[in-house]
């Protein structure tokens, strides 16, 4: 198992190298130039040239890339052109907010999606099945930003407890304070801010999980070993939850992993609607402003996280189904 993990980690190196070259080429070859974005409509050619020289954009592309790479290998992702702050600082101060939103959304989606999917599969063709499938259809076709705005207009505006925007303290920090100091206020303050954005992201994901759990369960429930288990006279609940669910969960776990990874960079719209200070907004703004170091560093960081999530998914297969082994 350890050897397997090490091998997977080593395999990530060429992958990341390839991604960094691709991103570097994409941002440098697409039209638009960071100095012009900084100077805006009023730019003078003299100022454009002067600033390009200060930032080193007048050097040949391959030299710019190797400069960036040699710094990156030493853990220095460069300095934002626009803000003059190190990219590692900018990313790390937002990573917490992004992870928090992703984790809470996944928890909401899993806590609702899997039970709904199971019930729908077990009571196939019943009212519950139709209801949960309609819910899934609506959920998957509702755009997150629209749901977010609806939640703000119809829920947050009427319920004083729910704020309209922003983040207040980390819920991970809040949990730690709850455990160490038995104080609940920090955690609650964090939760009340994360609730609506998490629901608006989690809804679409819940819909996908519900559908997938249902179809996967239906497939497994038709298998011979389930009939055998039932024939043995096992309690129906045990058959469904122990024998069927564990096997049906494999594709669901894959989807959860992919969705979780996508959320790390792809929650931009929800982050914007709720003014959530996450990584997605940082990177999209950087793309608009052609802030190369942030784009490079941000995409690289997301690639690393995505690869790690994938690895975690593969490992969790073995945990769910002991017949799967990695050597």
């Amino acid at each position: 198992m350890i050897r397997y993990i090490v091998r997977r980690l080593v395999q990530m190196i060429p992958l990341l190298l390839g991604i960094s070259i691709l991103v570097f080429l994409l941002v440098h070859l697409s039209p638009g130039d960071p100095v012009r974005m900084l100077l805006g409509e009023e730019a003078t050619e003299e100022d454009v040239e002067r600033l390009n020289a200060i930032y080193g954009f007048d050097l040949p592309l391959h030299i710019q890339y190797f400069r960036w790479l040699s710094n990156a290998l030493r853990g220095n992702l460069g300095v934002s052109i626009r803000q003059g702050i190190s990219v590692t600082t900018l990313l790390s101060e937002r990573l917490g907010a992004t992870l928090e939103l992703a984790v809470v959304s996944v928890l909401i989606a899993v806590a609702l999606g899997i039970p709904l999917g199971i019930i729908a599969a077990v009571r196939r063709g019943s009212l519950v099945d139709y209801f949960s499938m309609i819910l899934a259809l609506v959920g998957v076709s509702t755009p997150g930003f629209w749901l977010g705005l609806m939640l703000l207009t119809h829920v947050a505006l009427k319920v004083d407890f729910l704020p309209m925007f922003g983040r207040d303290g980390s819920i991970f920090g809040g949990l730690w304070i709850l455990i160490t100091q038995l104080r609940v206020d920090v955690l609650l303050e964090g939760l009340r801010h994360v609730l609506l954005p998490a629901v608006s992201i989690g809804t679409g994901m819940m819909a996908i999980i519900t559908r997938l759990t249902r179809s996967s369960m239906l497939e497994v429930l038709g298998k011979d070993y389930i009939r055998t288990a039932k024939a043995k006279g096992l309690n129906n609940q045990v058959v469904v939850l122990k024998h069927a669910l564990r096997n049906a969960l494999l594709p669901v776990i894959t989807i959860i992993g992919i969705q979780f990874g996508a959320m790390l960079g792809g929650a931009v719209v929800t982050e914007t609607v709720f003014a959530w200070p996450g990584v997605g907004r940082l990177i999209v703004n950087a793309i608009r402003q052609r802030d190369f170091p942030i784009i490079q560093g941000g995409v690289l960081m997301m690639a690393v996280v995505f690869a790690l999530v994938n690895l975690a998914v593969d490992i969790s297969y073995a945990l769910v189904n002991p017949r799967i082994r990695y050597d």
Binding site: L149, L152, T153, A156, L157, P163, M164, F165, G166, T272, V273, F274, A275, R281
Partner: peptide, 18 residues
């Protein structure tokens, strides 16, 4: 100063008195 990029959210927060 609160940075709220989405106009609709900023307006709702304004109307809610935040």
């Amino acid at each position: 100063f609160r940075a709220i990029p989405e106009n609709a959210t900023r307006l709702l927060a304004f109307e809610a008195g935040e």
